[in-house]
Amino acid sequence: MRVRLILPAVTLALLPHQQAPAAGAAVITQVVEYECTAKATGERQNVDVTIQLTMPTGATAGEQLSIGWRGTYVRGSELLAPAGGLTAGTKLYAYASISDFPGLTSATGVGELGTPEAGEIIPLPSGVVPLRTTPNSAGTGTVRPAAINFGPRPTEPEIECEVLNEEALTTYPLTVTAGTGGPDDDPGGAPDDDSDPAPVNPQPTRTVTATATATAVETVEAEEDTPRDGVVRTPKGGAATGGGGEAGPDGRTFVATGLLLVLAAGAGLLLRRRRGVRSRPGSASAR
């Protein structure tokens, strides 16, 4: 009895580990027929893959959701590496098609692979590959398996596999609910910061006002210096301020008058001397 109880336990322990789907999650398992084409050689192969999709629960608009993808070959229809093999670091890129959902068309995931030689079976990831996408709004759509590609990068596939029996595949509904209305769901809401915002249009500083006043004063002074009736008026102390000949009485009149006075004085002095000589005794005029 003990041997019979131990052997089943050992046998179960040696079986490959299967990741259990989340509680309440819907699981879809079906065989997908692919036509795979090697881009370098154009070689084509028909491959059958049993794909298991695990649908998410509680998907919310604005948050990333994940669809579990797990694939295994149907015996006898495995994908073989083309002539020349595959580039080192080749990965599996799996897709799920989403229909009838506003603004959401697919989910994508990537799985690590080995590097098989030409003619060898290209292995599929042993674990679950999460296919991720982010819905922008609430809604309901349908999901089904889609293409799988092999290559070093998603934009550089070396093997492309397209679904042949797409219309025969079973679909499952995907439901996305609206957000909770928290701060993260309202990008246009008011900020949480209670601090006073900085003024957008601050008042002019006193420096600017003083500059404007000084300019106005200069303008008024300039207007006062400019005669309004066309007559130039002599300021006080015109001679000292550079008023010129129009600043006061003409100085040439004083100079001419002074010169006449000097000449008259000289003539009078000369006349008196002549009269004195004539009146002296013994002079020729006296005789």
Results as ranks from 00 to 15, higher is better:
Pro281Ala: 11
Tyr73Trp: 03
Arg233Ala: 11
Ala9Gly: 08
Thr54Arg: 11
Pro199Asn: 02
Val49Pro: 00
Gly24Gln: 09
Gln30Ile: 07
Glu117Ala: 15
Met1Tyr: 09
Thr87Glu: 15
Pro154Ala: 15
Val277Cys: 02
Thr72Gln: 14
Thr140Gly: 00
Thr29Asn: 06
Thr142Phe: 14
Ala216Tyr: 06
Val128Lys: 09
Gly258Phe: 01
Pro123Arg: 00
Arg206Trp: 03
Gly119Ser: 14
Gly127His: 07
Ala178Pro: 09
Thr241Gln: 15
Ser97His: 10
Pro102Trp: 03
Gln19Met: 09
Thr37Leu: 15
Ile121Trp: 01
Glu162Gly: 12
Leu53Thr: 00
Pro157Lys: 07
Val74Asp: 04
Ala22Arg: 14
Ser126Lys: 14
Gly245Asn: 12
Gly248Met: 10
Gly181Arg: 09
Val208Gly: 01
Gln64Ile: 00
Gly179Ile: 02
Gly84Ile: 07
Leu12Gln: 12
Ser77Asp: 11
Val110Asn: 03
Arg153Lys: 14
Val143Ala: 00
Gly189Pro: 08
Thr11Tyr: 07
Gly248Asp: 15
Gly238Ser: 04
His17Tyr: 07
Gly189Tyr: 02
Gln19Thr: 14
Ala96Asn: 06
Gly182Trp: 04
Lys39Asp: 10
Ile159Pro: 00
Glu162Pro: 00
Gly68Phe: 03
Ser66Met: 14
